[in-house]
Write a protein that binds this DNA or RNA. Structure first.
Length: 138
RNA sequence: CGGGCAAGCCAGCCUAUCGCCUUUUUUGGUAACAGAAAGGGAGGAAAGUCCGGGCAACACAGAGCACCGUACUUCCUAACGGGAAGUCCUCCGGCUUGCCGGGGGGAGCCAGUGCAACAGAGAGUAUACCGCCUGGUGGCUUUGCUGCCGGGUAAGGGUGAAAGGGUGAGGUAAGAGCUCACCGGCCCUGGUGUGAAUCAGGGCGCAUGGUAAACCUUACGGGUUGAAAGGUCAAAUAGGUUCUGCAUAUAAGGGUUGCUCGCCCGCGCGGAAUGGGUAGACCGAUAGAUCCUUUUGGUGACAAAAGGGCCAGAUAAAUGAUAGGCCAUCUAUGGGAUGAAAUCCCGACAGAGGUACAGAACCCGGCUUAUUCGCUUGCUUUUUUU
RNA sequence: GGACCCGUAGCAUAACUGAAUAGUGCACCAGAUUACGGCUCUGGAGGUUGCAGGUUUGAAUCCUGCCGGGUUCA
């Protein structure tokens, strides 16, 4: 409520990043996931949140060098920032989202953006929650 | 002009739109926080973690041993295994043949102990296999050859990575530093130099081969741990810790770096203070062995002085994305210089092209490794034309 | 961020107090045995000892620097 613009404008502030250790553990324990070839997504409904919280990860397993990992994270973050308004068109439930990049290739921004748009469309932003028991335990 | 080597420098810029982190000021708000304005925002290696420091906590009466590290000299430095200047040895290249340039190396195996497979007669107070020389005594085809029993020898052969200085002469039965000359080595004295060293003189026949990235000796240095150090904030209590009173009485046991000596504390009961773990926030944590310019001293590393500047502080971890332009650079075609070739220069249009290595994690000084295009300096060098 | 360890045939492991052909088992190939296959027996091949320098007469081993993999620390 303090940050009205976070829903609609093209920002990506610190509060929109998923940082809490507990929430991350919860997400990876109970969240469901799907894939859009290079990207994998894990998500979990979060009734207590007032906006979506996103975590972006590029595993060290696929990319040894910090420069490459940072580059890919920046591209994914940018693509999310530009295309996130579509997430708010649905209902009022917000999610914890983890986006992971599982490929050895370094794709250009335009490719990553395409995949991310596809991915965001598949996210169930509506009120129909696929995993009730998970949200209860939290 | 081009090629090669070495050292050093640089690590694109501008505009628009949308964003990220942060500092200061300001507006709203009790506050958390939100908005606005103005600034700042990765590297030469931020990397590897190979060294050295700062900083912090703990420990510390002291001595010895052990352990670890370093090793030509002098200097620089907060310190270093780093750097500078020099010195000696060695390798490569060049020529003017003793100089220049570059690479590598350096305490001590005449303090001791150990080690050297195979081969070889012998491998370290050495050795007699083939040889060389010779004494005695036999035999025979008697200036000689040869069997047996002895002796001398380290010249020659052969083995090996290495055979106990080298060359020449004398000497000898044959030989041998046995003697001598020169070269090499070691020791002493003196001169020069802060010193490593070097020069000169004298002595020693050489007793003293290699290996210390073998044990070791000598000299110097090192307390341990490591920002996940450590500190602050709010709540509750046990153990623990610290201080203190009483009691016990020098013993068990514990601490003191791994050990020894030495030193210190002591079963138990009571009182006071502190507050374990978990989750989190803040400090530590970004003004410093700082950066830039100039001057002075020094061969140089570097130091001093003056003036000016503030230059990332994130923490699931900030610099990005898109579009356009400028400008390096490259490619092909074209033009010019020249008698021609090689080579060089110019460049409208077109195409390629933002690049390599790589992302701060407490902070510095080094080392090592990775690295696109280009530029500067030094050394060296081929071909073609005139 | 700090500390530590390990790299040997396709796989697992010896030789790590230097010594000249780097050993062993499984797997692989060939032969024997069998009607054929397995088991068994005999023989063989396969190694840049992670890479690059150095010390030594001689390096898997000792020293230095890289590369790769792993363990651990509130």
């Amino acid at each position: 409520m303090m940050d009205h613009n976070a829903h609609t404008s093209l920002t990506f502030t610190r509060d929109e990043r998923l940082k809490s250790k507990k929430k991350i553990e919860e997400l990876f324990k109970y969240g469901s996931f799907f894939r859009v070839p290079p990207l994998q997504v894990k998500y979990l409904a979060c009734p207590s949140c007032s906006y979506h919280q996103v975590l972006i990860a590029v595993p060290k397993k696929f990319h040894k060098k910090a420069v490459v990992r940072n580059l890919l994270k920046r591209r994914i973050r940018e693509a999310y920032r530009i295309n996130k308004p579509s997430l708010f068109e649905g209902g009022q439930t917000y999610h914890l989202i983890a986006i992971m990049y599982l490929s050895k290739e370094i794709l250009p921004f335009s490719e990553i953006e395409k995949k991310l748009i596809k991915l965001l469309k598949r996210l169930p932003v509506d009120s129909s929650l696929p995993n009730h028991e998970a949200s209860h335990e939290s």
